[in-house]
Amino acid sequence: MDLTTTAYGTWSGGRFMHFGETLSEERYMECIRTAYEAGFRTFVTSDVYGNGKADELLGEALVGIDRDSYCLVGTLGHDFYQGQRQGNRGYPRFTDPELRGPEGYKAYLRMACEKSLERCRTNHFDLVMLHNPDEAGYTSPAVWEGMNALKEEGLSDRLGIAPGPANGFTLDVIHCLENFGDLIDWAMLILNPLEPWPVGLALPACEKHGVKVLTRVVDFGGLFFGDMKPGHEFKPGDHRAYRPEGWVEHGLEKIEKMKPIAERHGLSMVEFAAIWNLSQKPVECVVPTFIQEAGDDARPIEDRIREFAVMPDVRLSPEEVEEVKAIGDNTGCMMLKGASKRHEVSERPDEWPMREDLLELAGRYGLGEEW
């Protein structure tokens, strides 16, 4: 089963990422069941969330539901089996040379995939993605030989790449597609009307190589759900509180300018954000972050899930897509992760020095050399 238009991610609900209220295990699983009942037929999980706990809760929540009736997407990449957590950096990638060399990549990926499947109570993923790769993940033939082995051994029907955790990696993704695109079916990228840059620059390359795109953060930190107002107060520890001051107010001002387009098509603003993504090739699936906001007057997370489950069968015109892109233009608003001229050495697993082959690639794709 291939991915459907909407997907539900196990990062929702605040248990494994810090935002809004943290749901109890039972309510967390009930949200997954609510998603299925509302029409979601694609579920995305990651083995590193809760060191396997998200996999377990997803598997338990879907017990009794026909496995052939939903698409299951797994993501692998952080080694929490042998690696030691490195503070807010999280667990090291399995490609960390202190853990293993290229000769060990294939065995690690098989082990991690099999354990994730066991926790999810199934024997195969419909899609397994390389999660938050470091530079080796984008460039190493041994990594993609290991990923391809998962498909050859029947552990996954499709393969993909999921850059992160922050935004960037544009040239790295394009380089990866040029070298391993014949193995890659899907890419999971950050895209929404308030963040058209930089992912929009990679979409033509994805289309060129026949790679479908699943877009995350379509809700822009919950803003498109419509519950957050100017001056919104976040709970202590909510990761959205670390965004630049005024991001809520700035975003709401731009959303106001987009509302006439949404109203023209009879869309709520979160539907509008999703449809804007889906109106661009090769985007074929959208996955938001469902958050139970703090406060007695906050809408139940279950209502948000039901609202998003099935998207209206409409698309924006190319002119409308560009109009929204101009309103939401965020070019240069953040320091990007991945290859960058800022770095002479790689000190973190999500940042590394720019390479000449990437600059040549940027020139061929008309992306300029200021990275």
Score class of each variant (00 low, 15 high):
Asp55Thr: 06
Glu56Asp: 13
Glu56Lys: 15
Leu57Phe: 12
Leu57Trp: 14
Leu57Arg: 13
Leu58Gln: 10
Leu58Val: 05
Gly59Thr: 02
Glu60Asp: 10
Ala61Thr: 12
Ala61Arg: 09
Ala61Ser: 12
Leu62Lys: 00
Leu62Val: 01
Leu62Ala: 01
Val63Pro: 00
Val63Asn: 05
Val63Ile: 11
Val63Gly: 05
Gly64Val: 01
Gly64Glu: 02
Gly64Met: 00
Asp66Cys: 04
Asp66Gly: 07
Asp66Ile: 03
Asp66Val: 03
Arg67Gly: 03
Arg67Met: 01
Asp68Asn: 13
Asp68His: 12
Asp68Ala: 15
Asp68Glu: 14
Ser69Met: 01
Ser69Thr: 12
Tyr70Arg: 11
Tyr70Pro: 08
Tyr70Phe: 15
Tyr70Glu: 05
Tyr70Ile: 09
Tyr70Ser: 05
Cys71Lys: 03
Cys71Ala: 09
Cys71Val: 03
Cys71Ser: 10
Val73Trp: 03
Val73Gln: 04
Gly74Tyr: 02
Gly74Asp: 04
Thr75Pro: 00
Thr75Asn: 05
Thr75Phe: 00
Thr75Arg: 13
Leu76Tyr: 05
Leu76Thr: 12
Gly77Asp: 02
Gly77Ile: 08
His78Tyr: 13
His78Val: 06
Asp79Gln: 10
Asp79Phe: 09
Asp79His: 12
Phe80Thr: 11
Phe80Ile: 10
Phe80Cys: 09
Phe80Met: 06
Tyr81Cys: 02
Gln82Leu: 14
Gln82His: 15
Gln82Tyr: 12
Gln82Gly: 12
Gln82Glu: 14
Gly83Phe: 11
Gln84Ile: 13
Arg85Tyr: 06
Arg85Cys: 13
Arg85Glu: 14
Gln86Gly: 03
Gln86Ile: 07
Gln86Pro: 04
